[in-house]
């Protein structure tokens, strides 16, 4: 494959600063060194030390105990449930992200800015509330509670509730990556495909999708990290029934509260590895493209569109 120099030399990337270096204008060396020391000290204290300590605590009782904890049936079932929750919510949010980005980036319609704000909404809501809203609807005292009990359907304190809560907290991730990307790419390539005789699906599969694949991948990586790691929202709807409604983060909590600290950290180390893999993949995607910079991780409001006027 030919390496596409896709937007690599566009302005606005952090790399530019490096290319310009050495800057003609800079601070005196001791100021520079001081600032670097302060920054690194802060990062070390708040990020590196906790990161290292996860693995140190996890291995405190030795490798045997570590793997024994991971092989424990309760751990295995927690891993399975986490995979199920992520396996359902990530594809659904992916589909939503593509649909929302298509409709917002390729068409003009009134109320678009409100839609953009609503898509962002789950980010600004406390995880506890994100879980609670489903209790209000599906819980025993909720809207559909009596009906669900009558028909013997469990949503809250059961797997469907966990999936719903996960879907809510990861709702915006893919959409947020794709909307700005597709807005920036505009409509002309799709129009060109149409004029050349392509039908709707052909236009999407052959023109749109190849153009957004990196953004899509990026959104999926971030979405998945949050889906597998969500704690607060899932904690509300789970009921924490061991072996049944326990996800990995909830299992960490149970082990920790049962004073099995090394066990809790052993399981936590799995999630930490997931976080490190996520960061590595994220950096790799950023290296391959430009313009993608964790807009889902840093939930700046999506850029609102002024009313489009055609000249």
């Amino acid at each position: 494959m030919v390496e596409q120099p896709l937007q690599r030399n566009q302005p606005g990337m952090i790399d530019d600063a490096k290319i310009n270096a050495p800057r003609r204008m800079s601070e005196p060396p001791f100021v520079r060194r001081l600032l670097i020391a302060v920054a690194l000290g802060f990062i070390a204290l708040f990020l590196v030390v906790p990161l290292v300590s996860v693995f140190a605590e996890a291995l405190r009782q030795g490798l045997g105990f570590y793997f024994q904890t991971l092989r424990d049936p309760m751990t295995v079932s927690a891993i399975e449930l986490t995979l199920i929750a992520a396996g359902i919510s990530v594809p659904l949010n992916c589909l939503f992200g593509v649909a929302a980005a298509w409709t917002i980036a390729k068409f003009d319609f009134p109320g678009k800015n409100i839609l953009l704000t609503l898509i962002d909404l789950p980010f600004s809501i406390s995880p506890v509330i994100s879980g609670m809203i489903y209790v209000l609807i599906f819980g025993a005292q909720g809207w559909f509670g009596p009906w669900l009990i009558e028909h013997n359907i469990r949503i809250i304190f059961a797997v469907p509730g966990i999936v719903l809560a996960t879907m809510f907290v990861t709702f915006p991730f893919v959409a947020r990556e794709l909307i700005p990307l597709m807005q920036a790419q505009g409509r002309t390539e799709e129009e060109a495909a149409r004029v050349l005789g392509a039908n709707g699906w052909q236009t999407f599969w052959r023109v749109t999708l190849p153009n957004i694949k990196w953004g899509l991948l990026y959104g999926v990586i971030l979405c998945n990290a949050r889906a597998m790691g969500e704690f607060g929202a899932v904690s509300v709807v789970s009921g924490r029934i061991q072996g049944q409604t326990n996800t990995i983060p909830l299992h960490v909590q149970i082990l920790y509260e049962n004073n099995n600290i090394p066990g809790a950290f052993a399981v936590a180390s799995l999630l930490t590895l997931l976080a490190l893999v996520t960061l590595a993949l994220k950096t790799w995607v950023e290296y391959n493209t430009t313009g993608l910079r964790g807009t889902a991780f840093t939930p700046l409001p999506l850029k609102k569109e002024p009313n489009r006027k055609l000249a």
């Binding site: 596409q4 896709l6 002309t188 390539e189 129009e191 004029v195 005789g197 052959r206 190849p210």
Partner: peptide, 19 residues
């Protein structure tokens, strides 16, 4: 619709498929 009109269109900024 455009896809069945058999009109060749060259866009101002070319709209070449970059991939």
């Amino acid at each position: 619709p455009a896809s069945q009109r058999k009109a060749g269109f060259a866009f101002q900024h070319y709209a070449l498929f970059r991939h």
